[in-house]
Amino acid sequence: MARDPGLPPRRLPRELSDRMLCGLFVLPTLGVLLVMVAYPFLSLLYYSTLSFSLLRPGQAPRAMGFGNYTMLLTDPALWERFVFTGKFVVLTVTVQMLLGILIAYFLQRDFRGRDIVFTLFMLPMMLCPIVVGFLWRYMFNSEWGIINVMMAAAGLGKLDWLGIADNALVAVVIADAWMWTPFVILLATAAFRGIPVNIREAARIDGASPAFVFFRVTLPLSAPILAIALLLRLIDAFKQYDLFFAMTGGGPGNETMTVSFELGKIAFRYFYTGLASALAVLMLVIIVGLAMVFVRRLTLAAEER
């Protein structure tokens, strides 16, 4: 590459080496993360081998070895929680990714009032999560909730949304996708706009169909951001707590109880601190394991390009 006469000559004689710059850029973040994770995680591992409760600090903790883990792993109810959580995560993340990418795609075209529409679409994500839960619970009420009223008016009949497990799952997915599709729209739009216009123009001039341009140019070029959006949504959906707390309270029975909800119950209602720590470790192992597989594939895909 030749020297570009458009840029004025350098002014600064002093220069940071790449290594120093890299260290200066990474270390603060690494420091904060280590302080906030290392200590709690090590304590978590230690506590998970004990039988004790935070409520009774005077009582000496009893060493359990892997007792907490065997108790959890042999409990069939816990597996139901994991299965239910998995169903919820897959459903809600699929809906919000597809919907988010679709809406972002259609929002690329310039039309009057687009920026206002875009801004309005961000509103659900800005609401306080716990308020969102109560709002949907209010709207899903089987008697006077607006959703059933509209369904009845449309001749579809009323549904017991929150009283039947499968319906409740759909209801929470509708609420969660409502709240978090904007997250995907925002990241996808930013990613789409990051693609230089001339690449798409070139493809169009070559006679490629819009579908071809989308699947062969737009999607692959915005893949890094979309993959990150997917990963973050998966993680957050796995942790989802507020919506279940406000909408179903885990019911009917325990049928809409997620792992995260169960953990909260063991830790802060029953105060079985040891058992809760073991469940937290299990949860982390599962989600970290899944994320590792995902991230490895992501890194491989990125290196292939």
């Binding site: 994770v37 993680i235 802060f268």
Partner: peptide, 23 residues
């Protein structure tokens, strides 16, 4: 490092709250 950064978001708040409280 990147994976570690991401994994910090995976921890459910309820899991680490007890320890933050003590810390």
């Amino acid at each position: 490092f990147m994976f570690f950064a991401l994994s910090t978001r995976m921890i459910p708040p309820t899991a680490v709250l007890v320890f933050y409280h003590v810390m």
